[in-house]
Structure formats: structure tokens, C-alpha cells
């Protein structure tokens, strides 16, 4: 079976129709470890890939005012149980361009695997990027994921980043992203993680609202059970007139798990305003009572609340 086709079951398990990789109107990269399995470009999008042994560098450029109607799929994974993958990806949206990227971290077979992703994203004036990054892990807990992102969002541009790791064991996760927002830019960062057993989760998200009337939202949703630990740091700095930022962290803790949330608010302009809210604790009692009174068992109610929060 061609290597690309071996990804199909992993993609389907992730809820993605594997036919997208055969669609000539859908740009994609598929990589098994450091092996480039498949790539496709489309009009308005250029793709250069530099394979350097233990590091693969992908440069993606979307030309001015291009509207990429189909999501760009980045399938990074490992078909084998052991190994590593190190990617560096540069994405540039020229002014007025619009695109959605869906990155799939396909590691359902992984037992001991290191996955490293360094991402730099430049979104020029008036451009829009929605970047979804969803990981599917196996049950071994041997995954180690390190993701860094440096994002610049130009004037009147929009960026939304959505990272989720809710299927399988997390293993060790170190997620670090910082965003610079120019005038009237809009930034939304969402992370959803479900930690089990002795998973270790570290999330650090920072937004610098450098531009006038720039806006941001950092939203973290984490569920922990067993002896999992999570340390969530959200940083928002308002540096200009009219800058508005909000951080919203919610962690549901079960068993012996430990969650920590640290919101850091900095304001260096008198007309900027940053707010935050955080809730860490067991499953909300009122929600539980309501669902049980509607016929669910306590276990079913807990699952529904946790999965709803991570949805």
C-alpha cells in the first residue's frame, strides 16, 4: 500500500474524510516522521519544503487577496510506534488573503515518540487565518509534544488558533505560543486538553496588544484525571489605546490530578483594558445535579460535562 494511503485510517479515526488528500483543490502536506509522503499546492498558495534529515522546513505563502476556500491540511504523524518528528513551518498570508489550516497530529500508534513543531506565522494587513491543530494520540503515554509559535497579526488582520488534544494520552505537552497584534487586529487562542494518568501539560500563551483597538481572547479548557498535572499560563499585555483582552481558563480536576492557572495581565497604556477569569475545581455540582435529575448516572453526567467543555 502506498505510504500516503496508510494515513487514511488515521485521518478517518480523527474524523477527517481521507478523500481530502485526493482532492486537487485542497492543498496539503503529509509527513511520516521526517519522510515527506505527499504534498499539493493550489493556485494562490506556494509551498516549499526543505528536507534536512532530522529537520523538515516548510514555507507556505498565500498571495495577496487570495481566498483559499478549502482548508489546507497538514498531516504530521508517525505510522510506527517509535521515532521522532521535527518540523519547522513558516506561514505567510499576504495582505487581504484568507485561509484555514487544519493540522493533524496523527500519533495513534505511537508508544515512544517525540514531536516537535516550530511555527512562525505572519499575517499581513487585512488577512485572516484560522489555524486548527488537533492531535490524536495513543494510550501509551509515551508521546512528547513540543510546539512553539510566534505569530504576528497585522493591521485589521485576524488570527484564531485552536489547539486540541483530547483523544488518547497526552504524554508530555509543552505548548508555547506568543502573538503580536497590530492596530485593530483580532486574536483568539483556544486550547482544549484532556490529561490522564501521569500526563504532564504545560501551556504558555501570550498576546501582546501593541496596536490601537486590537483585541484578544485566550481561552483554555483542561480536564485532568488520575495523577495528571497541568500548568496553564496566559499572558496578555495591553500597550495601546483601546486595546482589549480577556483570558478565560477553566480546569476540571478529578482523582489526584493537579491543575494550576496563572493569568498575567499587563497594561502599559491608560486606555487599554485586560480582564481574566479562571475556574479550577471538580465538576460543577449544579451541572451534575441537573443532568442526574434528567436521567444520567453520575458517571455519564461527569463525562458529558467534561466532553462538553472540551468540545
Amino acid at each position: 500500500m502506498p505510504l500516503r494511503d496508510q494515513f487514511f485510517p488515521l485521518l478517518n479515526a480523527a474524523g477527517i474524510d481521507s478523500d481530502v488528500l485526493a482532492d486537487p483543490n485542497t492543498a496539503h502536506i503529509v509527513a511520516d516522521g521526517q519522510t515527506l509522503v505527499s504534498r499539493q499546492t493550489i493556485p494562490g498558495l506556494t509551498l516549499n519544503i526543505d528536507e534536512r534529515g532530522d529537520l523538515t522546513i516548510a514555507e507556505i505563502n498565500i498571495t495577496r487577496d487570495s481566498r483559499i476556500t478549502q482548508p489546507v491540511h497538514l498531516c504530521f504523524g508517525l505510522l510506527q510506534g517509535l521515532g521522532s518528528q521535527h518540523f519547522r513551518i513558516h506561514i505567510h498570508l499576504e495582505s487581504g488573503a484568507k485561509a484555514q489550516f487544519i493540522a493533524h497530529g496523527l500519533f495513534a500508534n505511537a508508544t515512544i515518540v517525540k514531536h516537535s513543531m516550530e511555527k512562525t506565522i505572519a499575517i499581513d494587513e487585512g488577512a485572516e487565518l484560522h489555524f486548527m491543530d488537533g492531535h490524536i494520540h495513543g494510550v501509551s503515554g509515551g508521546m512528547e509534544v513540543k510546539t512553539t509559535g510566534k505569530v504576528s497579526v497585522g493591521k485589521h488582520a485576524r488570527y484564531s488558533g485552536d489547539f486540541s488534544l483530547t483523544a488518547g494520552r497526552v504524554g508530555k505537552l509543552d505548548f508555547d505560543e506568543s502573538v503580536q497584534a497590530d492596530d485593530y487586529a483580532v486574536v483568539e487562542l483556544v486550547s482544549r486538553i484532556f490529561g490522564h494518568e501521569n500526563d504532564l501539560i504545560k501551556i504558555n500563551e501570550a498576546v501582546n496588544l501593541n496596536g490601537r483597538f486590537s483585541r484578544s481572547m485566550i481561552k483554555s479548557r483542561v480536564a485532568l484525571e488520575g495523577e495528571a498535572r497541568a500548568d496553564i499560563v496566559g499572558i496578555t499585555e495591553g500597550r495601546a489605546e483601546g486595546a482589549r483582552g480577556h483570558m478565560d481558563c477553566m480546569e476540571i480536576i478529578k482523582d489526584q490530578a493537579i491543575g494550576q492557572s496563572t493569568p498575567i495581565v499587563k497594561v502599559s497604556h491608560p486606555l487599554a483594558k485586560i480582564t481574566h477569569e479562571a475556574a479550577i475545581g471538580t465538576v460543577d455540582k449544579k451541572q451534575m445535579e441537573t443532568l442526574i435529575a434528567h436521567g444520567l448516572s453520575p458517571e455519564q453526567a461527569t463525562d458529558m460535562i467534561v466532553l462538553g467543555m472540551l468540545r
Partner: peptide
């Protein structure tokens, strides 16, 4: 509460709970 709900009792609270993702 679960056993009572299974027996056919339920309740609408004065301020019903809100849920994310449901």
C-alpha cells in the same frame, strides 16, 4: 438523587445550570 430520578422524579431549578459544549 440518581435513584430518585430513576424512580421518575425530576426538578427544574430556579436558576438552571449552564453548560459549555452541550
Amino acid at each position: 438523587l440518581y435513584q430518585r430520578a430513576q424512580a421518575g422524579m425530576t426538578m427544574v431549578w430556579q436558576e438552571p445550570a449552564l453548560f459549555e459544549g452541550i
